[in-house]
Amino acid sequence: MAICRCPLSHLISLLLFLFPSETACRPSGRRPNKMQAFRIWDVNQKTFYLRNNQLVAGYLQGPNTKLEEKIDVVPVEPHTVLLGIHGGKLCLACVKAGNEIRLQLEEVNITDLSKTTEQNKRFTFIRSDSGPTTTFESAACPGWYLCTALEADQPVSLTNEPREAVRVTKFYFQQD
């Protein structure tokens, strides 16, 4: 009997070895949507909202706070993200028109954007965290950062002088 018991225990260990890889092959759910909603507000406490289809930053009081736009984020690479609003249906893009560089809202679905192609680079922002605040540099327009004006109700835009005192480039960025 001793001869029989020995291969049997080997067999059990063999089966046990096979077992984890078999259990790992469990059925999966639906295709995941990696978009995550974040709250964004600048260091001067201005939140984002839409005015005439333009993204502006300012102060929202009491019942007006429902106008606040959350930012929909899809990570591309470790430090790069796609930014959108309205459930990812409007995306933030850096657009070069002649010598002018500006921030534009484009009607594309954030989850449809292919992150590797060059023409979609304008939607990509490089996220840098420093302490509790975050800055967003455009990948297509290097040196240009997402910013707000000091004054309230002014458009959210891009600046190439992030240290300038009249522009705010530091944001609080927390998952909603």
Binding site: R39, Q45, Q61, Y172
Partner: peptide, 10 residues
């Protein structure tokens, strides 16, 4: 609450 501007600090 109606006249407040909610502001968040970390």
């Amino acid at each position: 609450p109606a006249v407040s501007y909610p502001q968040v600090l970390t």
